[in-house]
């Protein structure tokens, strides 16, 4: 009579769990700094229980079976949270692969006198757990992507500050490359700030933009046009000599835009548009 894998698993749950925990604890990649041993044990126990509950002699070859939904659920949660906690892919992968080792060990103990069956069952278990491993990686990477996505959003938020540098004058230093999604954020922030402060001049400083190609120029022109539609003027400053060169070589027409080499000269221009003048104080002169 063939050995029932599900029965075997149910009967030896605690042996399996102990074996697995032992393997995890002795592995050098154990991260007891990120997770306590108790937590690890609870997590592992949950998975072993779910596996013992859902695994039958039929579905061992059917990874897609809906019986494994609970196992998948637990695995996704674990790898997702590990991705966020900063576990490495190796450490996360070892978690599931050490379970495989523990399972095979268990089979070896129980089926030592029947090598054919041992081999067959090991093969099946291998395949099943490899699939679990793949799933773990997929969710782990997804978890990482979430982290990256959140950081990208944060970066684009902090890298587009709009500063009111004078009554009615805004400045927006752009650092980094200007792609279409960045441009959207820049435009939205700038236009909203124009409304909030009632400013009629905006200075867009591009000293921090590494290169201006035709696409970036197009984004700049869009931003300037949108500002104009709102009824404000836009000055582009911080144009480095090499940027001036590429702009002309690429045949980009910036003639409808007020451009200045430095933020200082842009501010000067803005002052004259507002009919303001900066004067040295009289008393200071008397001191000399």
């Amino acid at each position: 009579m063939a050995t029932s894998i599900s029965q075997l698993l149910k009967n030896n749950k605690s042996t399996l769990l102990d074996g697995w925990i032992q393997k995890q604890l002795t592995n050098e990649s154990l991260r007891d700094d990120l997770m306590t041993n108790d937590e690890l044990r609870t997590q592992s126990e949950e998975l072993v229980n779910a596996l013992a509950k859902s695994l039958t002699d039929e579905n061992i070859t059917q990874v897609d079976s809906s019986d494994f939904d609970e196992v998948f659920e637990i695995l996704s949660t674990i790898s997702m949270s590990r991705a966020r906690q900063g576990f490495s892919p190796r450490e996360t992968g070892l978690y599931i692969f050490s379970l495989k080792e523990a399972l095979i060990d268990l089979l070896q103990q129980k089926l030592s006198e029947n090598p054919t069956e041992l081999f067959e069952l090991s093969q099946k278990l291998n395949r099943l757990l490899d699939n679990f491993g793949v799933l773990t990686f997929e969710t782990f990477i997804k978890g990482r992507e979430d982290v990256i996505l959140r950081q990208t959003e944060e970066i684009s938020d902090i890298s587009t500050p709009v500063i009111q540098i004078w009554d009615g004058i805004l400045a927006l230093p752009i650092i980094g490359t200007l792609d279409s999604s960045r441009t959207q954020v820049v435009m939205e922030n700038l236009l909203q700030k124009i409304v909030d402060t009632g400013s009629s001049i905006a200075i867009l400083d591009i000293s921090g933009v590494p290169a201006v190609d035709s696409l970036v120029a197009q984004h700049l022109i869009k931003t300037v046009s949108a500002t104009r539609l709102m009824g404000a003027d836009c000055i582009i400053s911080g144009i480095r000599p090499e940027i001036a060169q590429t702009v002309v070589h690429l045949g980009i027409d910036l003639s409808n835009i007020i451009t200045k080499a430095t933020m200082a000269s842009a501010l000067k221009h803005a002052f004259s548009m507002h009919r303001l003048a900066v004067k040295r104080h009289e008393t200071e002169k008397k001191g000399f």
């Binding site: 435009m187 939205e188 236009l191 869009k222 949108a226 539609l229 709102m230 009824g231």
Partner: peptide, 16 residues
């Protein structure tokens, strides 16, 4: 008094 969202949309639409 054009609203920011309207200005951005018009530019994207190609109407300046």
């Amino acid at each position: 008094g054009m609203q920011p969202a309207v200005a951005i949309t018009l530019i994207e639409l190609g109407l300046s």
